[in-house]
Design a protein around this nucleic acid. Structure first.
Length: 579
DNA sequence: GCCGTTTTCGGCCCGACTGTTTTCAGTCG
């Protein structure tokens, strides 16, 4: 079985867990975790890189040893060191690290003294009153462990950004309306606009006598107060979301904002630069010795290490520091660049509104154009269009375009990519369209080779324009289908095909790193909402967030083009393939 | 385990909060 990047990263993470419980050198543990993180972010499979004889030690954080272990993993599917460690430490113990308040030291004690191996064992030990007798444990710890077990069992993983947003904004306003509060900002992965958030990190400037902490812990959505101090408190909301509030002094606000925005890897990289310059950066400011030299504004943190301010969406230590040093940070796309939406449905298939209603809603957003892309016949569940019904829709669009001012409706179709890679409608009718969004909706479980070949073949069709939701994933619900995305992106580059960044909050398909790779290979992206209602058109901003995380600039995205330029590009794309 | 115009050895980001201590270890972010 071929080992993909996630599989390799998984093994390193497991090894890091076991080493940590064993009490190994924490920097060694970190080296494995860093490697796992790096491998997950790579655009290509390390297995392919190994097969091609590439030098893996050129990757940051990968030395001779890890390069050798990667090679072993992709060639044998396993890692002797991991198996050896698994004999010393029961691998199930790693699960206990997920419990809030339990780290490697305590897990080790639980295992060695009480023989705990699993969540169930731990639960029994707590109920038998044995845990409180251990050194360093007490009754409160016992209760915290029980609660932690329950939360872990109820937990589904990280929350969609779009799900967290309403409560996050309500909380922000609640805090901002508190007396003595000068500024409030949500930092963390929320500010970096990651597709999911694990918790919220809120930062505030407040006068010393401000009741902001009380206002925070008594917010109506709070289910449980985990800790409460003068500068930091943690609560859990009813939705399950954990929220931290930190109160900082005005002269530290910028440093704190930078620090709590993260990512952790980005901060470590920035601080390393600071150390080289004899500076210390922490959440209170920038210091030379004990003397503060800045920290009120975030820009000063970057300026202190000779960098321009870096947009939060880029702060993942995926090259943004190097780009900033070289003065080559991207000029990231914004919502204002967007001139239209190239993937929307109407009530002719599974949408809820008429074409006219969708077009007017798009015009209200300030768009120049909207492409109606109803489903093709194969998607029977959505009452997909056959040739005849599609032609009727095209006639309706002609009539609307004559009548409607200020918006142009483009003729499109979300054409199903059949199992063998053919498109679901004959070329004769596809030729009448301005563009196609071609997508996979069935047979997600094809073997990788077949799934990849299916999509590559579809791209060769002269009427293929945009690959819709390229991996089919639904965040927290459905994994991407097994497909060689690297090959697909390369093929798109060769064929002049466009890839969609589907802006549905639960799809956000392509991922940030895939966007980055597409950009590097010169593949254009369409950021589209896949709207089924007029309200869904507003999902565009989540697509923009993701695009920014993927380093995209306006010039990388086709729906920033004025109408005529867009139509020219679509026509050229077809000629390129037909030739 | 990685890494290097201050180093091939000795560093590796750093502070708050909790619960258990009697001055601090463990955990978290």
């Amino acid at each position: 079985m071929k080992m993909h990047n996630n599989d390799v990263a998984e093994l390193f993470d497991r090894l890091a867990d076991l080493l940590e419980i064993e009490g190994a050198n924490p920097f060694r543990v970190r080296a494995y975790r860093n490697a796992a993180r790096l491998i997950r972010s790579l655009p290509r499979d390390v297995a392919d890189m190994v097969a091609a004889g590439e030098d893996l030690t050129r990757l940051p954080g990968i030395g001779e040893d890890l390069a050798g272990k990667i090679k072993t993993i992709v060639e044998t599917g396993t890692l002797p060191l991991l198996e050896e460690e698994a004999r010393k430490v029961p691998p199930e113990l790693a699960e206990l690290l997920e419990i809030e308040g339990l780290g490697p030291k305590r897990v080790k004690v639980l295992h060695e003294v009480l023989g705990v191996r699993s969540l169930e064992d731990l639960e029994r030990a707590v109920n038998a009153g044995k845990v409180r007798e251990l050194p360093g444990f007490g009754e409160k710890t016992e209760r915290a462990i029980l609660e932690g077990i329950q939360r872990l069992r109820a937990q589904y993983g990280r929350m969609l950004l779009a799900t967290a947003e309403p409560v996050a904004e309500a909380l922000r306003e609640h805090l901002a309306a508190t007396s003595g509060v000068e500024r409030v900002e949500i930092a963390g992965s929320y500010r970096r606009r990651k597709e999911t958030v694990g918790d919220l990190d809120i930062l505030a400037i407040a006068a010393p006598d401000s009741p902001v902490m009380d206002r925070f812990t008594t917010f109506e959505a709070v289910a449980r107060v985990q800790s409460k101090g003068t500068t930091r408190s943690t609560v859990h909301l009813r939705s399950g979301l954990q929220v931290d509030l930190r109160v900082v002094a005005p002269q530290s606000y910028g440093a704190a904002l930078q620090y709590f925005t993260g990512s952790k890897a980005h901060n470590i990289a920035v601080r390393r630069l600071a150390v080289k310059r004899g500076l210390k950066i922490n959440e209170y400011g920038i210091f030379r010795g004990s003397r503060r030299i800045g920290g009120a504004e975030e820009e000063a943190v970057y300026a202190s290490v000779d960098l321009p301010w870096i947009p939060p969406e880029l702060r993942e230590d995926r090259g943004e520091i190097e780009a900033a040093m070289a003065g080559r940070l991207p000029d990231l796309i914004t919502q204002d660049h967007i001139r239209g939406d190239l993937h929307v449905h109407s009530k002719h298939t599974d949408g809820r509104y008429s074409i006219e209603e969708m077009a007017r809603a798009a015009r209200d957003l300030g768009y120049e154009y909207i492409a109606v892309t109803d489903h093709s016949r194969r998607v029977a569940m959505a009452h997909g269009l056959d040739e005849k019904r599609l032609r009727q829709e095209l006639e309706e669009i002609d009539r609307l375009n004559e009548r409607l001012e200020g918006i142009r409706i483009l003729k499109g179709c979300e054409v199903d990519i059949l199992e063998d890679g053919r498109l679901d409608l004959p070329d004769s009718v596809l030729a009448e369209l301005d563009l196609t969004v071609c997508s996979v909706h069935y047979r997600f479980n094809l073997p990788r080779e077949k799934q990849t070949a299916r999509i590559l073949r579809a791209m060769d069709n002269p009427y293929f324009t945009i690959l819709g939701h390229p991996t089919g994933r639904l965040i927290n619900e459905r994994d991407p289908y097994d497909v060689d995305l690297d090959r697909i992106i390369r093929h798109a580059a060769e064929r002049g095909a466009i890839l969609e960044l589907n802006a549905q909050p639960s799809r956000l398909d392509l991922t940030d790193t895939a966007c980055q790779q597409a950009k590097e290979l010169g593949v254009k992206i369409a950021i589209s909402t896949d709207a089924h209602t007029v309200h869904d058109l507003r999902f565009m901003r989540y697509g923009i967030d993701q695009a920014r995380r993927g380093w995209l600039e306006a010039g990388d995205v086709v729906n920033t083009l004025p109408l005529n330029d867009l139509l020219d590009l679509m026509a050229k794309t077809r000629h390129a393939r037909a030739a």
